[in-house]
Design a protein around this nucleic acid. Structure first.
Length: 370
RNA sequence: GGAGGGGUAGCGAAGUGGUCAAACGCGGCAGACUGUAAAUCUGUUCCUUCGGGUUCAAUGGUUCAAAUCCAUUCCCCUCCA
């Protein structure tokens, strides 16, 4: 079946809803860990379950190159292949392809995008149709349209033709999309240009996708601009479909997103930070490699209920990170993901209670204190 | 006892008369990271009151100038006896 969004409570523009999927129903706002290569780096599916993670991302481009979509199809689909029985969302590969395309003018053509494999340098060509076909074979629950994610800033002229092409690509993807068990999301682009965001959103909505994402954010713009990009997009999106802010996963940005009506977030931030020895705490981000934690025998965040915080100290994790033991990365990945998942859990409660704004203000005050 | 090689910043290792406070790597200390080309990348790492001061095993010497040349001493390694 296709996913279904059920709105259960609003507080201002903030929404508490339920996402009904092939693999269970999950409350939104939701934070979705990223597992690019069919694994959330360093974590097992059991560990994901333990922190109440639900939807996980995988990446079309990476799995297309390795091991190949046919291999995953022969394995019985992504869920079976990676032993994950929760919902899986596949990103289209657009984000990767555009960072790999050397010459924007020459490599990005109407038909698709020319680029070179980051593994062996061979020439590849990805099209909207191919991206959708690969995602069909991967058998994810949610597929993403193949879009162009331009850097920041680009000229109005460039953004205009890019947005128009992204829309044509969305329609081409829709036309070849065949998997009845897979939902397909459209993506709103348009950079910081209000009229392009409006146009992109309205035209994308006309295609009647199963959900809508806001793309092209957190690509180097300042925070204020990013929030405006959301504002300029979201007001044209229908209430009865989920709204997904792609690639955003800073605690503050999640709060700002929810405040504007976003339901879904994904980000590499928590897991990458973890591998680089950083941890989210209620008092801001900390670097566990810092000397000051050498003999700090307290948990990373004493308000946290995760496995890492319940059993291990900063001093021990610092030791692991300094000694380059992978268990440190794993513990911090568990913690950082749980931190964001707990954040959205508390957000949902506050929406139910009509106190989202207070919750946000209070969280931000403590978080910024550091 | 004989022959040879070597001692350079916390460690390893370049440098063999001036452009050397001394490449590079590691280690140390910090910073960055937002649809994962990222368990990665960047900065910094003798002391300093930022004028300068003190370094290349030690001491003495040659020179306008020495980590670099000479003498002596101490230590390490290899081979032969």
């Amino acid at each position: 079946m296709k996913i279904k969004y059920e709105l259960i409570k609003k507080d201002g523009k903030a929404r508490h809803g339920i996402l009904h999927t092939n693999y269970g129903s999950y409350e939104t706002p939701i934070f979705m860990p990223v597992g690019t290569q069919a694994t959330v780096k360093t974590l097992s599916p059991e560990e994901l379950k333990e922190i109440h993670s639900a939807v996980v991302l995988a990446n079309t481009y990476h799995l297309w190159l390795r091991p190949g979509e046919d291999t995953i199809m022969h394995a019985g689909g992504l869920h079976k292949f990676m032993n994950y029985d929760g919902p899986i969302l596949t990103d289209s590969g657009g984000f990767q392809v555009f960072s790999l395309a050397r010459n924007k003018k020459k490599d990005i053509v109407e038909e698709g995008v020319h680029f070179k494999s980051h593994i062996d340098g061979r020439k590849l060509f990805l099209t909207p149709e191919l991206s959708i076909q690969i995602q069909n074979k991967l058998d994810s629950d949610i597929a993403m349209s193949f879009d162009e994610c331009p850097p920041y800033p680009v000229s109005y002229e460039y953004m205009k033709q890019s947005v128009e092409r992204t829309l044509r690509w969305a329609k081409r993807g829709l036309a070849v999309h065949q998997n009845e068990n897979q939902s397909l999301f459209g993506i709103v682009q348009g950079g910081e240009f209000e009229d392009l965001r409006k146009w992109s959103a309205e035209e994308t909505v006309k295609c009647n996708f199963d959900g809508y994402s806001i793309g092209g954010t957190s690509v180097g713009e300042d925070k204020k601009t990013m929030y405006e990009m959301i504002d300029h997009s979201i007001k044209y999106l229908p209430e009865d479909k989920p709204r997904y802010l792609m690639g955003v996963g800073d605690p503050i940005d999640i709060l700002e997103g929810v405040e504007r009506g976003i339901d879904m977030f994904d980000c590499v931030h928590p897991t990458r930070l973890a591998r680089h020895a950083h941890a989210f705490t209620r008092n801001g981000k900390i670097n566990l490699k810092n000397l000051k934690y050498k003999e700090d025998f307290t948990p990373v965040d004493d308000t946290c209920d995760c496995y890492c915080c319940k059993h291990y100290t900063k001093a021990y994790i610092r030791h692991l990170m300094v000694a380059e033991e992978t268990f440190g990365s794993r513990l911090l990945s568990i913690h950082n993901l749980r931190f964001l998942i707990r954040l959205v859990e508390e957000i949902r409660t506050s929406i139910d209670e009509g106190t989202f704004q207070e919750y946000k203000n209070q969280f931000m005050e403590t978080y910024k204190k550091k």
